[in-house]
Design a binder for these strands. Sequence first.
RNA 1: GGCGGCGUGGCCGAGUGGUUAGGCAGGGGCCUGCAAAGCCCCGUACUCCGGUUCGAAUCCGGACGCCGCCUCCA
Length: 463
Amino acid sequence: MIRLYDSARGSVVPLDPRDEGAVSIYLCGPTVYDLPHLGHGRHALVWDTLRRWLTFGGLAVRFVSNVTDIDDKIIARADAEHVGEDEITATYEAAWWDALDALGVARPDATPHATAYVDQMIALIERLLALDVAYECEDGIYFDVSRVADYGLLAGQPLESLRAGARVESNPDKRSPLDFALWKNAKFAEPSWSSPFGSGRPGWHTECVVMSLGLLGDDFDLHCGGLDLKFPHHENERAQAVALGRPFARHWAHHGWVMVGGEKMSKSLHNFTSLTDLLAQTDARAYRLLVLRSHYRSPIEVSPATVADAERALARLDALARRFALPALAGEGLEVASGVVWGDEGLALYETVEAAMEDDLDTPSAVAALFEAATRANALADEGATARATELAAALNACCGALGLRLIGDESALDAETLRLVTRRDQARAQREWAVADRYRDDLVARGWVVEDGPGGTVVRRA
RNA sequence: GGCGGCGUGGCCGAGUGGUUAGGCAGGGGCCUGCAAAGCCCCGUACUCCGGUUCGAAUCCGGACGCCGCCUCCA
């Protein structure tokens, strides 16, 4: 079984699923009030990789990721643009899925929306009130963090220490600055739901408890998300479950940030690049490769230079796919290892990749093994060991597919004019009329093709 | 103030007590009509200062620098 760094334990431990052969994962999804940025892209890619890998290994993965569609920022944006909240959430949720589809991120098995779970959230808050773990203030209902004995588990700090660092609290009614809103009473012209404790809307930390436990059940396996959600969001989710006496996530995993110029990319720092913009000018697979080349818990620096570097590295793998006519994998469905015929060379590669992946999702090592295999497959083919080379190349492709990395080897269909130039060039070369052949090559290059001489004559691919 | 992380060759980025990470870029060679793709070879890195050790980029102590969480945030 895969070993993962568990944020609650502070160490790498084997994943210990509740049900044998199955893994239940909850991923905190986006608040849809703006275009997704590169950090969201990494978030989606990292956990898509984990999901794909576990699935590849034969586990039945149930992957749930929510969409937060009621929130202060959504309301603020709707106000600023003089449109309804519905319009904001519809626009940006569509942008979210468009971007993830482009990245080749598989859709979750379920994508619960907060607004569809308000009734359950109200019920949860009522129970917390009944247990006296929640209390009422002028502006809403708050959770009393002092009622959870091990509050601070995920933060890695005891309650007192957290309290000492808390900033000046604007709400004097709260018993502790760390207490968080379960329910916010309705203000003028805000979306609201009626409840036993008045009209209002749920606080952010409640939705994920209700939806994760509701869809995956008590004691589900893995709760993951960005490092910035560890505290207070995940801490607070957990606090509610603990207060209710319900076993929550068995494991916690968090990924690191996308950095820009040495600083965390974030909306509040205004240093973000939208994923939508990146994907408009870059091969999405290059971003996936860039993400895979660093460890998920490390920060990654994303810049035009690092993206270009990844694009060139990807070109090397695509060239291999072209040479061995490998089929494009990692499409709509998730790949499964049991369907792969490895062969000796391939099995050695798979075992190397597997060892890396099972060691806390060590994708950099896995990718290194893939590149080494690419060199070896090419070398074998150069030596004439065609069968072994082909077998290794196929295994490499299967491993890439397992990581969600789609290699593209087949050439795009050629238009008539391109086909004509290719034929003319081959004729000229057959007659050793090099100057003429070179002129046709120049024409092809001018039309956006890269020209290579293969065993069967001119081969072109898009530049 | 509390807690945590990081500092690796031109760049990106792993690793972790002794043997090549990997990629990109660069140099040399092979192949090619010339290219492209591919293969082979090359740089010999680990912030600084002490310490432990036969041996440290890797462990310990200290210094310096950087980043993050403690507030919304992937």
